[in-house]
Design a protein around this nucleic acid. Structure first.
Lengths: 231, 231
DNA sequence: CGCGGCTTTGATGTTCATCAAGTAAAGTGG
DNA sequence: CCACTTTACTTGATGAACATCAAAGCCGCG
């Protein structure tokens, strides 16, 4: 973890386009004063569950995972977030403490804005608040939707679903390196490591995908679609 | 379904205390002009999935369920909502159409406020917006949290969990009438009707609960707690 | 009165987790 | 840089948890 001496500022940030268009220049400068850019190495913990929520976080570069740990210490990955995802949205405005942990899956840069300064802007700028609300709802909706979909599928359907998700939503191509281990895939789609491996092997034997370590090559995307849909 | 000619208004409503404390009197009167009170009989559909979101809904009286239907037409109950729950929160500000259906489990009265009038207030009143945001986050967090918890338990744990939930969160006593059928319990905690019945019978035989049709009487609440926790 | 939906119990089969055991890969410390 | 340890990956065998199928009684409703 390393705090970056950033020369950039919110109002000139190329990423502000997404959400912060509803903020005035003054407001952007204001929150910029409470902003830090922090770099995390692969594997580093960004937020620990139960930490107090003191910041509004968003991901500028990299890839992170959000994890919930249950009473039996079993981990479940809630979501994998890419740049521009507002990674702390699930807890930021509801709880005083985080309900999950956040870990970097690759070298990542996070913008951390002091929570109180964000709240100040929200209180004063209802248009921005509305925009942010829609963003929060969309994020949580996505997580809920995905969770239900996955849990209704059988194991083969889950693997198909997640491979398609990586191909379409994260990497935008049919060949990519998995950013997570087999075990983590299991935590993401609720199955054991052994079965993740078994079914990946099945898909390989059936000629649906090619595997070389973490590298995945989707050969028959229509088959995957079918398996994913049929459950 | 019947529109009630209500003599009451938002600013005198006893329920405004929860959320609408952050609205001014003028604002309350304003949204009141776009407000309808609607009564639904048990079993009536309040919102159908894919309906356009035109209103902000909250439950004044009764009990409702939120249902998601998947591609295989399998239903899953997302949540059961009591009065003061803002039943449409999950979709209201994120989608143009509802992602789930809402059905009355008993005779219910719903306040329906025109969405645009609500948005007007949000845009002008950031303090209210912040309050609403926290409410949205709490609702979705609860749903997510419950979903993960339930899915990590085995069947006996799920039944124990849901019985305790009804006793503690809905009826506030150890004897109550189930508002839903065995099949619906299955849809709520992700198991088949047969197994819901089977495990309820087991609990009965073990003297943990008494059952008479829809009436449930919890005899050994500590046992239920234990079963719920141990998974 | 009969029909469909809800409830119940038992029998059967499938899906999946668990256990075991071994190989490969990746850190770690001297 | 090499021995050592740990972590990731892989395959097979076993058993448990759960869904599915089947059959019958019950109740409310047209």
């Amino acid at each position: 973890m390393r705090i970056i001496q950033s020369k950039s500022a919110c109002n000139t940030c190329t990423l502000k386009s997404l959400l912060f268009t509803k903020m005035s220049n003054e407001e952007l400068q204001y929150v910029n004063g409470f902003r830090q850019e922090i770099e995390f190495e692969k594997g580093e913990i960004i937020i620990k569950a139960n930490d107090p929520v003191k910041e509004f976080l968003y991901l500028k570069k990299g890839l992170v995972k959000l994890i919930k740990t249950d009473l039996q210490n079993k981990e479940r990955i809630i979501s994998i977030a890419r740049p521009l995802d507002f990674v702390s949205l699930l807890s930021t405005f509801s709880d005083t403490n985080y309900g999950y942990s956040i870990t970097a899956l690759e070298k990542s840069v996070v913008c951390s804005i002091g929570l109180e300064s964000m709240k100040d802007v929200i209180r004063k700028n209802g248009v921005f608040a509305l925009e942010l609300m829609q963003q929060i709802s969309k994020s949580t909706n996505f997580v809920l939707q995905a969770t239900y979909e996955i849990d209704n599928k059988q194991l083969r359907g889950r693997i198909a679903y997640i491979l398609l998700w990586f191909a379409k939503k994260i990497y935008h191509k049919n060949s990519f390196n998995l950013p997570i281990s087999r075990r983590e895939i299991g935590e993401l789609i609720n199955m054991t490591t052994e079965n993740v491996i078994r079914i990946l092997s099945e898909f390989r034997k059936d000629g649906i995908i090619k595997i070389d370590g973490k590298n995945i090559n989707i050969e028959k995307i229509d088959m995957l679609e079918k398996i994913s849909k049929s459950g």
